[in-house]
Amino acid sequence: MNLSISPEAVPLIREGIFVGLIIVTVFGALLATLAKRMTRAVLGLVVCFLGIAGIYYFLNSPFVALMQLLIYVGAVAVTICFAIMLAEPDERKLAAKTPGMAGPLAVLLGATVTWVLAGTAIKAEWMAPAVKINEGSVKDVGVSLLTTYSMVFELVSIVLLIAILGSLVIARSGRDKAEC
């Protein structure tokens, strides 16, 4: 098959991919917020994460895209599924929503913030992107994590330890009066 693409079509295709990824992300986000069942909301979140991973890849950061897939889709979404499974939330309560001013107000506020931020961000002069270490390969990221950013790396591990410890303290024995 001869798949020669004329040079004029390249920017068009690029735009097309970008817009497609954005549509996927926004669709996932909408699904996550509007779904009435928790499991569907998680599915929406996964779609949203996938879209973001695609954008990272599109922006030439394969490592970050890979991490997004591994950590968010692979670990975080699965953890949320486990939490839902263990907590067995009452699905009917989610369905009952009282209409009020909060919704429209939130949409208005969100739209304003997005408008202002996007407006200034497009006009702003950004710094040139930071020096890319060897195409952001896993090895180089590892080396700089354990040298330049060793302190940050260790701190992250302590933060994660506290997150685990804290969630265990809160979750263990539920609200059982007899235990606590």
Binding site: L155, V159, I162, A163, G166, V169, I170, S173, G174, C180
Partner: peptide
């Protein structure tokens, strides 16, 4: 800023849990 943020989160996560430790008290929850 990164170190600052991590310190902040370390502090905040610990305090969130401490606030909710009176598990049988709905006000604490």
């Amino acid at each position: 800023m990164i170190v600052l943020y991590l310190g902040l989160e370390l502090m905040a996560l610990s305090v969130y849990c401490l606030v909710g430790l009176l598990k049988s008290d709905s006000r604490s929850n």
